[in-house]
Write a protein that binds this DNA or RNA. Sequence first.
RNA 1: GCCCAGGUGGCGGAAUUGGUAGACGCGCUGGAUUCAAAAUCCAGUUCUUCGGAGUGCGGGUUCGAUUCCCGCCCUGGGUACCA
Length: 1024
Amino acid sequence: MEYNFSEIEPKWRKFWAENKTFKADNSSEKPKFYVLDMFPYPSGAGLHVGHPLGYIASDIYTRFKRLQGFNVLHPMGYDSFGLPAEQYAIQTGQHPVITTEENITRYRDQLDKVGFSFDWDREVRTSSPEYYKWTQWIFIQLFDCWYNNKTNKAERISGLVAEFEVNGNASVQACSDYNGTFSASEWNAFNEQEQEAILQEYRLAYLADSWVNWCPALGTVLANDEIVNGVSERGGHQVEQKLMRQWSMRIKAYAERLIQGLENVEWTDSIKDIQRNWIGKSIGASVKFEVLASTPLSQQEMNERQLSGVETAIEVFTTRPDTIFGVSFMVLAPEHPLVEVITTAEYKDAVENYKKAASLKTERDRQSDVKNITGQFTGAYAIHPFTGDKVQIWIGDYVLASYGTGAVMAVPCGDQRDWDFAKHFNLEIKNIFADKDISEAAYTEKDAVIANSDFLNGFEAKVAMQKAIEAIETKKIGKGKTNYRLRDAVFSRQRYWGEPFPVYYKNGLPVMIETQHLPIILPEVENYLPTADGQPPLGNALTWAWDTTKNEVVSNELINIETIFPLELNTMPGWAGSSWYFLRYMDAQNEAEFVSKKQADYWGQVDLYIGGSEHGTGHLLYSRFWTKFLFDQGFINFDEPFKKMINQGMILGRSSFVYELYYTKLFKNSDLEVGNALKSYDKQPNIYFSEKYLPLVKAICHDNNAKQDFSTLDENLQNLKIDFDNKIKTIFKNKYPNLELDYIVLIGNGRMEKNVSINYVENNILNIEQASTDPLFKFFRNVDFLLEDDGTYICGSEVEKMSKSKFNVQTPDELVEKFGADTLRMYEMFLGPLEQSKPWDTKGINGVHNFLRKLCRLFEGELTSGEPTKESLKTLHRTIKKIGDDLERFSFNTGVSNFMICVNELTDQKCNNKAILQELVILLSPYAPHLCEELWEQKLKNEAGTLSYAKFPTFDESVLVEANFAYPVSFNGKVRFKVELPLTMTPQEVEKEVMSKEEAKKYLEGKDPKKVIVVPGRIVNVVM
RNA sequence: GCCCAGGUGGCGGAAUUGGUAGACGCGCUGGAUUCAAAAUCCAGUUCUUCGGAGUGCGGGUUCGAUUCCCGCCCUGGGUACCA
């Protein structure tokens, strides 16, 4: 049969779509299996060959599971809210709805061409109101819950209020930012505002002031990576730290469960490590150090302090309570609220100056500048709780306000940063470790015996820590504590293209809109930029107020603060919609619930999740958080979303570039006029040299300035230089006939690398003529090339991320056009292990394409229906075993190899047996579904479309049983020859047979073997 | 600095439990077929001084190590004054 893929493939794609072949059944007797790809953002650039890599793998696995008799859920959709569409809207005025729709159409078209078996009836888009209705709904549930540390789960806020009304908050153990205590009567006496302000400190979704990177010039908040060297990446504007009232998510409440849950999922260690690292659990103790008042406070001052809630003790968190006797000073973060209180008059100015200097640095700067040790003494002292010693209190920017309590007890002998600080400011370094030298550096290992530490003397760290915590707790100056680095997640974005919050404001307090009125639809705006007074883009909306009587969004003009109130102007972040989308696929059309309990119970966890590892601390953490919350509230019965995850490696592009000679300085006769004319020529030499000259250019441009000494060059380079100089002189001669050029000096690194499109480069050889027909490279017509000896131009090349600007993007469409989707699918798998990143190169694609053609040749003419030969049966069953094993361990590349081996063998056997070939077609169908469908119907005469639900072949071990085995015989581990012997032979018999062979005598060289090892059915090793 | 992944022919890679290193494909070389080319088929292709050597380097365990252990080098990714 001829392999006419361009006819076969569209035919079957049409068939699958029309017959809804891949529709997943919501109620089935079959066992379920859920295979999911990470949610794609439909970008305007479309797909390149790297994107479908994971989709192909998951599709192969999906089809395999269907053949194994599973009811498989394999959906696809779009994470379609996001910044690029908004930025495009700002630039062009085009509504994001329109560009998003266009991009999705392009994506869908590209995805369809690869022949994926998605159940498209379940498609979801985060930007559609039917979907974000439920994102808003989940937000309201989070707002309505708090985290009870006693029951270790999220509970309804109404239960908390009931407790407050009866008992106050004394016995409540919650994850909360609220530090105070109140009784029931106090609670009942608070007004509505005061009560809500307290409840905000308990809710899982809450309003709070958070620091943001505010860029006044752009009128917007910037992410850390949008700031380079303290200014905005776009435009280089100044960025300042600003407190902003924003929605946050109390993910901290789940810190411990997010760590524990990692034990129950099959993810790679590296992703688990990234998450553990991010959550940053550390075990230690919190300890209070009383501050010694420098001047006795007046009674009035004392009263004032008490009233304003300012404590005069510094609370620190330490992971080494065992080293508490080594404390010789304390350091507070410059922003610590106590700094203002404790600083003595004498140091007021110095401290103020230091604080100002620190505030100019971003957190990143403070963290990256390790060498520069800075700090300032406050003039104040704390009292060591055990020794009663006076210890100096300093401020230093190596202490961060946002971690722990924003203060440290400095133990210079046991912490390198404290040690550095002490050395720099000449502070005391107490040694509390027996027999450890701390004169050059701190001793940070935990194996030292503690000394000079009163009741801790003689204990090792582990024991001393317990003893120290006991003492601290007995003294009531602190307690053992576990600290997490994880911070609550800011949930507001000052953007247009995101989910609107279902929130309006009454007397400054947020009020949730009742869920039956959802969704709150994103309003239309004239302009997607922030408003003139710095409000988010929704501030431009004219119809953005909530009417509490009509329960609808109405014009802002109607706001009366009695029945009609302003709506929230922020929108939700990208991770809102993607934190629960895997649940929606289970029940995508449900209008009454985000997912029905029945469907959530049936489909359960995602059994296999495939995607990149770049979401390690974002999506993969937040979706675990939301899943645990929904589990706590009883909406679903599992608390980890993704049971097994595979992170596919990136496909890198190979980019090619030409070397432009750069900053050539021409020294010549002293004719000034010509010199001036050359000056402008200098900057645009317009000479491109081939790879051959690269070593020379590298060798001669290490000196930037003057005339260089070339005598140190080796002979090859000397010769190359003569060639190089001659060519350049000729070029100049042609352009400036009256110029006498003496020599050339290259400046900088002597070259500029300019990317050329990979379309014009083959085996690194640039097709100059072809490239210069492209408007982008037509300048090649007007430049000079220094070529190789054979007259070609060899490009430089690099393996890097695929991107438009590098001209190294390969789209799947072109390859489907040229080779067909089945070839593309198999080739992407054939490249190497799924999880490794690898360079893209189409060199080998012909090999895979030829394999499919070779397969077709097996189907030429009529197939025989008799008994297959023994050889063919062996080939088939070996293949069944290998393909099955490879799929189970996600080794798709070796799968392709094994198919090649199988087809090669069957070709050698001239096999055209129907029984054999039919099983092979089923095996291969997950990889090459179009061709297999065609063979299944046309050649094997089965009903069209039934292949997807055929039965995966069963491996029959008995077919492969052999009577003999060719034993490799090795001498001292080196294999020398083989002896074929029956497998029934005992080791003794094998040894006897082998040693009697002529070859054995040859390798023994007349000596007696020391030992002969026979591993039955494996190997014989002779030790001499 | 720390954590993770990796290092095997000219190239992508294989070797699943310690047991024949280099499967499979590309590329290359030679041959067949052809007026010629493409396509196809056949043979060869780690290096080699033909003794051997060989999976980043140096040790170790073992009858036997790409595989296990110790030390180091290199590449890629993550992360960082985290008290």
